[in-house]
Design a protein around this nucleic acid. Structure first.
Lengths: 212, 212
DNA sequence: GCTCGCTTGTACCGATCGGTACAACTTAGC
DNA sequence: GCTAAGTTGTACCGATCGGTACAAGCGAGC
């Protein structure tokens, strides 16, 4: 859904500069990271339109042009963007890699970088705690469900029994979310690495134990 | 700081009905649970004075009479109240019990009840994710630090080596926080019990393993 | 060069925000 | 009953909220 050829009416138009309609999409997409960061730092309620406006560098008019649904649509788009990022960088590799151990190591690495060793909030997790989770509960639940099943599937490919694999997967996602809270609360980056590292070892050990 | 004799000017006044000054304190304290629940449900930013007012049944005037510092003071008082509750029901027993295994089992039980199997948000954890954590970071960090040390100390009394005990303690608090997020996100109470139960088993096993 | 349609900043809307002021009320002590 | 202190609801404050309207700005196509 990123680049690709626009479904223009005339195939001749492809030679020309990007259609205005296409530039719209592009600008909307390029605003998402800034919006995401603003929501992360202030929460959904706390991120006012003023904050969102100066975070993106777009005026209110532009924001409402791209997101007619207002803040709700902005958050929805951000959540979809995050889900997409995780899908390509975490979930797909977990599901597809033919080396489960490497896939898990890579996941831990990506997660540590993405969450900045726990100093960066997980927006999805934070939404699930807030009251604003109402309209987004489906997105939130889909994100975590996908993560868990992807990880469980990877573990299964590492010869872990299905039920155990699912338990390990839940435990791992849970540990990551908890590690963010704990390391932020204690203002200690190191604790994130130690908890996540320990969890990585648990997973790798589980796969090693069931190795034929 | 709860009951006790008020520092009245005349010792004769003790016979009389509670001084008005004392009733003030009592009413302030009795508003805390409602305030806590409102903050849990709406977050600090989301809990408007209107919400807080109807949650407590007190008018704005009364709220500002009891909490001249406004919302900030309300949240501070709520956090102190929560910390006190955890201290008496969780931390102290962990530190004092002469049966570490029973103390840990009791902790898990209390935690499960308190967080309603993960459907009830941990206000302290939620604050640590929000931007409003600024002025409360010390309180938040003290809460988690105390929990971890209390649990680690209990494990040590169960003959777990100090470094391992601390690691287990961090892991457990982390698992609880993560379990709240996950069970809320997935709308699945069961997952809280399964994760917390598994963690309980890990702790008990660790103590059993080091049993002479 | 002109038009047309998308984009954008700005002014503005009513509602609500956190917070203050204060008058009316309740209550205790005499 | 009277007074004084403590408590409460309500009216109100300026600021800001999310959201709308709209005219100026801008680039593409003829």
């Amino acid at each position: 859904m990123a680049a690709g050829t626009a479904p223009g009416r005339s195939s001749l138009a492809q030679r020309a500069r990007p259609l205005t309609a296409k530039r719209t999409l592009s600008d909307r997409a390029s605003a998402l990271p800034a919006l995401a960061e603003a929501f992360r730092e202030h929460g959904f309620e706390g991120a006012s339109l003023t904050i969102l406006s100066q975070a993106t560098g777009l005026g209110k008019g532009s924001l409402y042009n791209f997101f007619p649904g207002g803040k709700e649509e902005m958050l929805a788009a951000v959540l979809a963007d995050i889900h997409a990022w995780f899908a390509t960088h975490l979930f797909d590799p977990l599901e597809r890699s033919d080396d489960p151990r490497a896939a898990i190591r890579s996941m831990i690495e990506q997660v540590t970088a993405y969450f900045r060793s726990g100093q960066r909030v997980c927006l999805v997790g934070s939404i699930s705690l807030g009251a604003s989770g109402g309209g987004f509960s489906h997105r939130v639940s889909a994100y975590f469900a996908r993560w868990i099943t992807a990880l469980a599937e990877c573990l299964e490919r590492g010869r872990v029994a299905p039920t155990a694999a699912r338990a390990f997967a839940e435990e791992t996602v849970c540990a990551i979310q908890g590690a963010i809270i704990l390391s932020r609360a204690l203002g200690d980056e190191a604790i994130f690495g130690s908890i996540v590292g320990r969890q990585e070892k648990v997973l790798l050990d589980a796969m090693a134990a069931n190795r034929s």
